[in-house]
Amino acid sequence: MKNAFNIFLITLSIVFFTLAGFQVYLRLNPSRTLAVSTVGFEKYRYPQVFDQVDEIVVLSNPIRIQIEDLGINLPIFQSRINNDVWETTDKGASYLVETPVPGDKGNSVIYGHNWNGLFANLVNTKSGQIVKVEYEDGSTKEFVVDHTSIVGPDNSEILAFSEKPILTIYTCTGFLDSQRFVVVATLKQ
């Protein structure tokens, strides 16, 4: 009986370590780093279904975010909040579609994991750095980092409406990723 329990504990231990290893893989995944940083973004530009129609409907949704000073160059995926759970992706940055399109009046929100190849370097953002956002229609807008801050995970004030077009970018930081590093950038005129 004790032997069976011992085997159960060892099995459980292996499961825990395997899952922990997967989490480490998610953080450090070198293939993702390679994919999002060096491969062109053309394949993300339009959904595949558009290849089958004559007329491409061009929307002005953001499709890519770049902060050259930090080596951040990521595709943007649309996301929503479902029952207070934010959709996230490990393939790029997430744009919260409930917020205005970056550059429009209001507070646009983009967020992503603090993993290698994603927003790991976001914590090194400094005021004055340029954030570029590319749109589906091929246009680009530039934002200037105004300030950064560290807030708690429940601080939804960073999502508050703004009279001016601002871009809020955030990722996890701090002890056990318990805080959020927030970058606020204003539209470059």
Partner: peptide, 13 residues
């Protein structure tokens, strides 16, 4: 039209 939510995304593991 602010976003109504109780907290922010979990962007770390």
């Amino acid at each position: 039209a602010g976003v109504a939510t109780k907290g922010l995304a979990n962007t770390g593991n």
